[in-house]
Design a protein around this nucleic acid. Sequence first.
DNA 1: TACGTTCTGT
Length: 719
Amino acid sequence: MTPTTPFPRHLETLLRSCCAGHHLRPLFARLIVAGLVRHPLALRRLVELLALAANHPAAPLLARPLSHLYFRLAPASTTFLYNLLIRAFSRSRHHPTESLVAFSSLLRHGGRSLPDRFTFPFLVKASSNLNSPFEGQQIHSQVLKRGFQSDVYVVNTFLSMYSSFGDLASAQKLFDSSSEVLDVVSWNTIIDGYVKSGAVEVARRHFDEMPVRNEVSWSAIISGYAGKGELDMAQSLFDRMPVGRNIVTWNSMISGFARHGLLPLARKLFDEMPVRNVVSWNSMVSGYAMNGEMDLAMELFDLMPERDVVSWSCMISGYAQINWYMEALQIFKRMQLESSVKPNEVTMVSVLSACAHLAALDQGKWVHAYIDKNHMTLDDDYNLGAALIDMYAKCGSMETAVELFHALARKNVSSWNALITGLAINGAAHESLEAFERMQRSGPKSNGITFLGVLTACTHGGLVDEGRWYFENMSKVYGVQLEMKHYGCIVDLLGRAGFLEEAEGIVRSMPMKPDVMVLGALLGACRIHRDIRIADRIRCQVLNLKPQQSGCHVLLSNIYAAAGRWDDALEMRSLLKQSGIRKEPGSSSVELDGVVYEFVAGDCPNPEASTVYSWLDEMGRKLRSLGYLPVTEDVLLDLDEEDKETCLSRHSEKLALAFALLRATPQSTIRIVKNLRICGDCHLFIRHVSKLYPQQILVRDRIRFHHFKGGFCSCKDYW
DNA sequence: TACGTTCTGT
């Protein structure tokens, strides 16, 4: 069949007008019936359509059957068509593997068609997307067999591939053995490879040695120094660039300054630069966001002439990082309402994290549906799967989280970690440890975060011996290095269980200086067990901490207050005041019909206030007649008993509970999230309330979950 | 068809 074979006009029109959607299959059927499916015109258009299909939302459904259909026709096709196909799939987020399948089909069935110099770059792109060094090496050996070693395009392609895998040894080997053909792109590629793997000095040696430099060489080495925080060096290279500085070098400098907290310098460059693009704006906005300066970030964001998905993601993750989760979700909402920019995987990870922290299950489910509808993959490098598991776990829907985990095609460390941690915070300590053991047998190697989950499980289950064992064997048996956070966990575990001296011993023998979390865990234990001696002993260390985090000072003050040492308590408070730090106010949130409502202690938003207060008062009376006695010993102000009770009855979690119960249907589950730890009285109160109401009540505090039902709590009153 | 800048979290 040749291009001159007549092709019916109506089929040709159909072929041209067909777009990569569901019409492809019927079109195929008609071509087969007409005996024209191998016609060069049909094949060419077919591959173009496949190329479209590869990025089409329906691609996961279409791409595979279509490509298989295509392979049946393979003997008739040319290298050119194969390359089109390979390129189509190499760009596909969903099926980069199909590229490799197409390649091996070309090798097997290509007949006289052989891979050419254009075949390999696409293949390499696919294998980089797959993060598959093995396939990459296979392809490289094919290249060597077919004598492309003197083609500089092909060489550069593989240099870039090895660099992207972080395999600088192979890259360097190829570089050295290709010295005849190297061009400036080869040099730039290997320089960037070293920069990306953190070896700026090696990159610099190549940079100094290279015969000819272009703008890209300069921006690569500058971004190397800027990214590492060697900003003086970056600046001096930037100042003496012989070829014209371009936007990319300016942007590298801005982001270098910004990500190392030198915001005024970054801003100065940003203001001075002659032309800005969206990346310049994003670098500046993300600099502010990364450093917690969300007001400035927002100010600039609002001024942006155009915003892309990165701009929006910066703002969302920025708010999430300073724990302003409601604001993060609001920005996401704004993104959907006022822009045509589509969220990507990174956006979704940040949004899910915000939903998780707010226990905003309805919104989390919406995001899940969106991810499915847009065929985002759950097991890629962004760990969307882990983010979803984490979201469901933190919303108390552990069953869904577990189902999701099992449904994941590829499970990596993050997915296992999300499962283990999820089970741990939901009080399923044994299941969590079982999951960990399964992971050892048949899963990926565990990392530091895995052990945070394991130790958390032990803490919440009161499994002191197990916790000790895992802590002691973490590095010996599992080869995972102990970090500050693990010390925090073990101190919490031992302290909570009453082994305060042992916990204190660990704090004293730590190889690093204990941080807020570690000392806070010990102080928390002192508070639970009313141990004022240890609190006194570590008081100095606490006061030496950077005062930014008020948590420890507040805890100390509370410990003194609980022991009746009001003077010491006041001293702590005034210390806090002097340094201008404010205690993080207790707040709780609850989601109803997809809307998150937030409550601060003693302050219920109108118009519900009076109903909420009278419900609480009435409930307090009712419960007291059923045996509930307010736990006033945790009230840390110097008040008389009655005032203490009033103070308790306005705690934020009680306000949220009242608000939710007043509106909820009997079938609903009430999810309350508190930013601090639930207090003893609220815990007791809610346990009693759960006897009177059919709804399942979940309270997630800073530490863990409490599932209340029928007068009991899943934590068995141990927390 | 190959090289440089911006966004994830546990």
